[in-house]
Design a protein around this nucleic acid. Sequence first.
DNA 1: AATTAAACTAAGCGTTTGCTTAGAAAATAA
DNA 2: TTATTTTCTAAGCAAACGCTTAGTTTAATT
Lengths: 187, 187
Amino acid sequence: MARTKQYKEEDVIQKAMNLFWRNGYEATSVRMLEKEMGINQFSIYSSFGNKHGVFVESIKAYKSELNSIRNILKNSNNGILGIKQFFYNFLEFTKDNEQGKGCLVCNTVSELGNKAEPDLMVELMKFTEELRSLFVNNLKQDKLRTEDLVEREANYLTTSMLGLSLGSRIQNETELEDYIEMIFNKM
Amino acid sequence: MARTKQYKEEDVIQKAMNLFWRNGYEATSVRMLEKEMGINQFSIYSSFGNKHGVFVESIKAYKSELNSIRNILKNSNNGILGIKQFFYNFLEFTKDNEQGKGCLVCNTVSELGNKAEPDLMVELMKFTEELRSLFVNNLKQDKLRTEDLVEREANYLTTSMLGLSLGSRIQNETELEDYIEMIFNKM
DNA sequence: AATTAAACTAAGCGTTTGCTTAGAAAATAA
DNA sequence: TTATTTTCTAAGCAAACGCTTAGTTTAATT
């Protein structure tokens, strides 16, 4: 017995996510969100509570958007090669127009650091840990690797992803290709 | 025949730099700068023009602060080992209290991306290029390396520094040590 | 057709932002 | 001492910030 919503939450969050991805959290104002999401501030606040709530949902949407390439890694059974392919897929995934946008999670960690609110921090950390565990799984597919080596290589690859994220935003294709090739050389 | 300044520009910029380093550009307000620098807004604006001016000077101060470990790299003649030592020195350099602050230049690139003002962007790019050329110099000390390999390895190391910068802010010592050791294992 | 409850619009709330300015204080030169 | 010039204090500017709310519109239920 009431009026129906003129938007779907998942649709407007998708648009919010892209804005946050390009601009970062602080540099994205609620007025900008209004325009990009195509709904009034009232609707934003009634659906998501506050700006922070919009952001947390955006992070979740980002994760499921990344699932396309994460599943490729998950379903691969060619060890280190699958991880290398993931690095290249990520580069394609992050591409905007010529320049990359980086990883939204990495960008957020860099911007907010440890002053991110606890519920957000949980989402960010889960993301990193899930990715690392995918690396571990693929590394273990090579039976010659000791468990200790797998752990150390997983640490290496996780930090390397941070470099790729930031690199994608400021470096050219040659530099990024040299980077990835060198990472997986001799592994 | 006039009143004398009660502060030295280089002293207050040092304090401003540390604030920007911990908080980032946007999250550092002029009121915060006032308190940290210990001078009134009038003095800030008469000495540096605007907030952006304070930041540009802070970046320059950061670079000369980094000179301590950059000179060690510059004066080293043990090739790849000198670069590895630089990575460890950087980690020590960036340490705040337990957690690292990352590289101010990398943090800034991540926050502002390509919407940084031109004069600031010049400073940021010069920093990266200068560092890369130090890597090239040390790599060339090994006469067995071809010029092409040196270029590719320099690209690899530059992007790896970005990873180290972000990693220093969110990862523990074991993860970071694994990262650095693995980088130089391959070279 | 009347009722009702949620979704909409748009104006405006108090704060904070970067920055300015009028007037007082200080230090040198005459 | 007096005049001059710069620095300092502190109040205040317009604009933008995140967020709220009064009043209207819409759609399902009676």
